[in-house]
């Protein structure tokens, strides 16, 4: 399974400046491991010592927050779009709130 993963600005130093990378895996966790193989150092920014996604990191699969699906075990299908978004700028973790519409 291959998916495009969008990388936020502060992590692009690991991807040689690339805004998105392709990664392989059937779950988000596997995708993260796949990115780590190609871009060492990135996983430790995304996950804590226990291997869980760090509190301020949001990962979306097709716009859905994985915290509301199955965390790192959230399944990924061919062609899914995965985004890593830091909670900086008051980032909300509720799905659907990161819209471009006024309230």
């Amino acid at each position: 399974m291959s998916a495009q993963v969008r990388i936020p600005t502060p992590l692009r130093r690991f991807t040689g400046g690339a805004e998105a990378v392709s990664a392989d895996g059937a779950t988000v966790g596997a995708l993260v491991d796949s990115i780590e193989r190609n871009h060492p150092g990135i996983k430790e920014r995304l996950c804590d010592e226990a291997g869980e996604v760090r509190r301020f990191v949001n990962i979306f699969v097709n716009g859905e927050d994985i915290r509301f699906i199955n965390n790192l075990d959230t399944p990924v299908h061919e062609g899914d779009e995965v985004s890593i978004v830091p909670a900086i700028a008051g980032g909300s973790f509720c799905p659907g709130l990161a819209t471009l519409d006024a309230p």
């Binding site: 008051g90 909300s92 709130l97 309230p103």
Partner: peptide, 15 residues
Amino acid sequence: CIPANVSMERKKIIS
């Protein structure tokens, strides 16, 4: 000009 992911509270306060 605001990043789209600022919290809903902030958007509402500004509005």
